[in-house]
Nucleic acid binder design. Structure first.
Lengths: 182, 182
DNA sequence: TTGATAAACGGACTGTCGGTCCGGTAAATT
DNA sequence: AATTTACCGGACCGACAGTCCGTTTATCAA
């Protein structure tokens, strides 16, 4: 990748990140806005990212790296509470990246599910569910846990204090994995 | 409402229903398509339904009446298994109305949550959760149960036999409400 | 240093779609 | 039959995702 290309890629991701963070609704952020804010032509956006979904996915996954790094560190902590910590961290992430997460999840197609971050979370969670209660329905239960952090649900419950959401999530985790999982 | 207006309203809902049923992706169905299929001008659509979201909501709620009628009948059946029956019926509904449900849930804003069908399901479910395990986190748990039937999840799991989805849902219900809930 | 080459650039352009507007049409009412 | 008024349809508009192509520039070999 040529140097100017790499520089522009960074500029675009940074600009898009700021615009999504500042917006209440992902639809307020157009591709033209992003190009303008990055000081770049529109063609550059589409050449690099393919389409809007690609740009949003790349930005989301870049931000999700922090989350996955945390989960990696978490591997050598006590097993009890691992799922609770994972879900807690995920909710934090969704709250901190509300608009970007909504952009990703509303993109149509199977967008909430066609990104590597989701796959990684799901397979980790599935393993933990199997460990805690056996293989029966483990795949589905892992999806169900993740569905409880869907960003439009978080948005819908926007006037709840985050603490209350965390308690709800925690009750859900205890229900699915058993009381010793906290 | 004038007679021709009522007639056109019906024609539009019927046409829209057929188009969504035939489509794989809600975005394949444009407002122009619906107007043309209904034999009606575009203005008529927007005058009656306000915008695309309004039309989709009205159509969805019309179809959901069957579901709510079933849930009403279900009130005088044994309490054990009520939640499981409700969730099962809801999943059936989502499968039978896959594309329409995706249209509703992807409409942006808090669209999956701003329709009377969701509110009714949520409050019924919340009551049942309170009855089974007390008020703690009941509201959130009811949302979480409903989130497990999100139509894009159903879509993502499109190659699972419906039976397997039902089993997963059933395992989730037993976890949240206790084993005597089946 | 320079010249050739291919990658990258940018912004004008296109097609589509949701939503509006308004001159015409026909129900309803007397 | 005349009048009113809600309703109709489709031409029109603005916005946006995505494309195209003439121009620029990084790279590298001579």
């Amino acid at each position: 990748m040529r140097a100017d290309a790499a520089r522009n890629r960074e500029a675009v991701l940074r600009a898009a990140g700021q615009l999504f963070d500042a917006a209440d609704d992902p639809e307020q952020v157009s591709m033209d806005d992003i190009a303008a804010a990055a000081g770049v032509g529109k063609g550059t956006l589409f050449r690099r990212f393919g389409d809007r979904a690609g740009l949003v996915r790349d930005l989301y996954e870049e931000r999700a790296q922090r989350l996955h790094a945390f989960l990696e560190d978490d591997r050598d902590r006590p097993a009890a509470g691992t799922v609770a910590r994972l879900m807690g961290a995920l909710l934090r992430f969704k709250v901190e990246n509300r608009t970007l997460a909504r952009a990703l999840e509303n993109m149509g197609g199977a967008s909430p599910y066609t990104n590597s971050s989701y796959d990684r979370l799901h397979s980790r969670l599935e393993d933990l569910v199997v460990e805690a209660r056996g293989p029966e329905a483990a795949g589905f239960l892992a999806h169900a846990l993740l569905a409880a952090t869907r960003s439009d649900l978080v948005e819908h419950l926007g006037d709840w204090p985050e603490e209350r959401l965390q308690e709800g999530l925690s009750a859900l985790v205890r229900s699915v994995l058993g009381p010793e999982s906290s």
